[in-house]
């Protein structure tokens, strides 16, 4: 029943969008694509470039080849999963442990895809087209597409997102290589600075947390990691996040409900 309601809801949005903007000319499409490029070489260039530079430095530090570092950024295309995998690889984690931790780190792509994809035109691409857009999507491209200033017509959004995300991916690949070469060639203090970039940016990202429930999850995840690490070093990341997230979910939900 709920599923049907949701299908109807999305059909209606798509139908309304089609009614309100009946024609999209080639020049409008081109303009949206160009805007995607222009928007990507602003703040996203610094965010994505900086994050991937940190990953490139980390990849060098743990003994990846330069091409393996760039391949990781292009194929995984999700900074937390890349850093988690690199961290576990160097501390001796096996592939199953790495797969579980990377899957936990990337879980957020599921709700992001569910929210973003229905707003992109899919009349030509089918299921494969949807999956391709989901693969291109990043936290940055998602945030930019969800802004009020992004194009509203589904066809223009598709052109905008494709070019925006491909530009970010190119920046990410270049940043990874730059960080890798920087860690290899720069004086030690600067190379260590590159290694610290990811920790610093994740810290700020967590400090941006607004809801109390999410803050509880952050505090639990951080507080549980070290004690668990003493007993089960390889599982500390997965256990701290699952326990922290679940406790925050259960107690936070109880806090959200008004007292009866």
């Amino acid at each position: 029943m709920l599923d049907q309601d949701h299908n109807r809801y999305h059909d209606r949005i798509a139908y309304n969008l089609r009614l309100s903007e009946p024609k999209v000319t080639k020049s409008e499409s081109r303009a949206a694509a160009f805007r995607g490029f222009r928007d990507a070489i602003g703040v996203p260039l610094l965010l994505v470039g900086g994050g991937m530079t940190g990953f490139g430095a980390l990849a060098h530090d743990i003994g990846f080849a330069s091409w393996e570092a760039v391949l990781a950024s292009v194929l995984v295309w999700a900074l937390p999963a890349q850093v988690v995998a690199a961290d576990l690889y160097t501390s001796g984690g096996d592939l199953v442990a790495i797969a579980i931790a990377a899957a936990l780190a990337s879980m957020r792509f599921f709700p992001m895809a569910v929210a973003l994809l229905p707003t992109l035109d899919n009349s030509a691409g089918g299921q494969l087209g949807r999956i391709a857009q989901a693969q291109l999507m990043s936290a940055t491209s998602w945030a930019f597409l969800m802004r009020g200033s992004a194009p509203s017509d589904p066809r223009l959004r598709l052109a905008y997102h494709t070019v925006f995300a491909l530009t970010c991916l190119s920046i990410g690949a270049i940043g990874t290589l730059a960080g890798y070469l920087g860690a290899a060639g720069l004086p030690r203090p600067l190379a260590l600075g590159l290694l610290f970039l990811n920790a610093a940016s994740f810290t700020v990202l967590l400090a941006e947390t607004r809801s109390r429930q999410a803050l509880l999850a952050v505090l639990l995840g951080a507080g549980l990691c070290a004690p668990i690490h003493m007993v089960l070093p390889e599982a500390s990341l997965v256990l701290a996040s699952v326990i922290g997230g679940t406790v925050a979910f259960v107690f936070g939900d109880r806090l959200r409900k008004p007292a009866s």
């Binding site: 952050v218 505090l219 500390s236 990341l237 936070g252």
Partner: peptide, 15 residues
């Protein structure tokens, strides 16, 4: 979402 937040926090502690 909450588990992702907890994971990122644990990752910072590890890093």
């Amino acid at each position: 979402t909450l588990t992702s937040y907890a994971l990122l926090a644990a990752l910072v502690v590890r890093l």
